[in-house]
């Protein structure tokens, strides 16, 4: 058993209120399914698209990150899965995939003791 993060990038956030509501309901259903099967360690949170970036030895603080919308990380979730393949399999149901976004599945690094 291992822990993974789903990092959600991009995805079309516009749409009519009815569409947005449908999208939201798909997410809720997907999250519920993950939870029912015991894969949801933490549903995580959506992230604001604004923030600050702190960089370099000079510790420069700038507004940002100004990356393209399709690359911006919009939220994260923590997942329990047997291995990376299973985690990737679990991400297939993510509604962001229907809206032009992507899910980055990353194992959380652990030391075996």
């Amino acid at each position: 058993m291992g822990e993974f993060t789903f990092l959600y990038r991009g995805g079309d956030r516009s749409g009519s209120p009815e569409e947005m509501q449908q999208v939201m309901q798909k997410w809720v259903a997907w999250m519920k399914e993950l939870g029912d099967k015991g894969h949801l360690k933490d549903p995580g949170h959506p992230l604001e698209h604004t923030g600050k970036v702190v960089k370099g030895k000079g510790k420069n603080v700038t507004d940002g990150p100004y990356v393209e919308t399709k690359d911006i990380i919009g939220g994260y979730t923590l997942i329990n899965a047997k291995d990376l393949d299973e985690a990737a399999q679990l991400s297939l149901g993510c509604p962001i995939l229907d809206r032009g976004g992507l899910v980055e599945v990353r194992p959380i690094m652990k030391l075996d003791m």
Partner: peptide
């Protein structure tokens, strides 16, 4: 109103309605 609505939907995706 629209903005409040969109933000709410975004948060509820993760945290439930």
């Amino acid at each position: 109103v629209q903005d409040a609505f969109c933000r709410a939907l975004e948060v509820w995706r993760f945290r439930g309605v």
